[in-house]
Amino acid sequence: MWKFIHRLASPKHFYRIAGKWIPWLMAAAVILIALGFYGGLVKAPADYQQGDSFRIIYLHVPAAWMSLFIYMVMATSAAIGLIWKIKLADLFATASAPIGASFTFLALVTGSIWGKPMWGTWWVWDARLTSELLLLFLYLGFMGLQAAIEDRRNAARAGAVLAIVGVVNIPIIHYSVEWWNTLHQGPTVTRMDKPAMHISMLIPLLQAAAGFQIYYFATVLMRVRSLVLQQERRSGWVRELLREEGVR
């Protein structure tokens, strides 16, 4: 087990293993998302209050979950890279940021589209919308900082410090914004007693969420692979690989 993990941390083996995993992960993601969307958009009954327009939940909620989840993954791997100086962990953080920013953006856009029929407006200065917007700024700041520093090693370390500071701040930002103003409906799924959703609506949502998660892992592996190639372009194994592929 440990030997496997150690080998995985070496760019060469990672490149090979990730290359094998990506097609499987992609296939699983497509199947799960298709199942979730079919169940949610076609089979699930319409909501008694919101009618059919609640169905955007199957896109909106998984995207919002992913936006937070990816930030945590990004900060954790950045911290691992900072502490144990594992190059691959730095690359994971760098590769996660644009994906996380996209999911955050998706959650904002779908939320806005959902808000129009429900609240009668595209945007309200509501707590959750605002904290999601601030999360987007945190992602963009991370990406901007990494892009501005030329030395790759320093860029990764500076980004790691910023991501860790962000993690400390996210709960503070979230609760302060919540205290400030709220209109958003409360959480429906993650309640301690019993989800407030019917099971026929909940299962597709969880399928879609799992699909999004696996999709994230597949895309992050793809991005990390190309970053590995870029970073190791002078090393022997990359040259050999290129020769095998017939690239000059």
Binding site: L134, F137, G141, G144, L162, I173, S176, V177, W180
Partner: peptide, 14 residues
């Protein structure tokens, strides 16, 4: 500004 202003939000609100 991009890095710091989001972190200033809680102070501003309170």
């Amino acid at each position: 500004a991009l890095l710091v202003l989001p972190l200033y939000v809680p102070v501003l609100i309170f």
